[in-house]
């Protein structure tokens, strides 16, 4: 009995020292809470990825999120966590519109490995121009890292 206890003690002590000196694990989770917008045809009401999609934040023209990309579905909009609103230029098949989001950001712990991100609660109605966009439907106001649709953009 004493021998077993002593042997187990040695094993546990070794495990303690080894685990205590381990480096932090890597982060494999999504760390950005994007506004996830489905792109739908206004006439058929069905999802339809545009032939060309360009998106960038206003004043950030040199840093495009999508640059004439085809088949994007859904489109992801990263909100500016340092501000209470931000706008995006959205060019669908070459026609430009602007979408403005107003929101409240709050911190959220993803995990020990990944740290914190910001979630957002967007205010409605969402402001947008109607050059090619017909209507924006808000399906989920809470913007998180979960793969949940937040908006439907009809064009």
């Amino acid at each position: 009995m004493r021998f077993i206890s002593a042997a187990i003690s040695v094993i546990i002590s070794a495990y303690l020292i080894l685990t205590a000196s381990c480096t932090p694990a890597a982060c494999f989770e999504e760390t950005n809470a994007y506004v996830k917008a489905s792109l739908n045809d206004f006439e058929t009401k069905k999802t339809k990825a545009p032939d060309s999609l360009t998106v960038y934040g206003t004043g950030m023209e040199e840093k495009k999120i999508y640059d004439g990309e085809k088949g994007v579905q859904p489109a992801l909009f990263p909100l500016n966590t340092s501000a209470e609103n931000c706008s995006f230029v959205v060019s669908i098949n070459g026609v430009n519109d602007t979408i403005t989001f107003r929101y409240r950001s709050y911190p959220h712990l993803i995990s020990k490995e990944c740290g914190y991100t910001f979630y957002h609660n967007i205010d409605t109605p969402i402001l947008y121009t109607k050059h090619t966009i017909d209507y924006i439907y808000t399906s989920q106001k809470n913007i998180t890292t979960k793969n949940v649709e937040n908006l439907i953009i009809y064009y």
């Binding site: 934040g57 999120i65 909100l79 740290g115 914190y116």
Partner: peptide
């Protein structure tokens, strides 16, 4: 307490604390 955390996305890096 979280004296500092940073979050980086398209718009840049935001710092905050809890």
């Amino acid at each position: 307490e979280t004296p500092l955390f940073k979050h980086e996305n398209y718009w840049g890096t935001a710092s905050s604390a809890i």
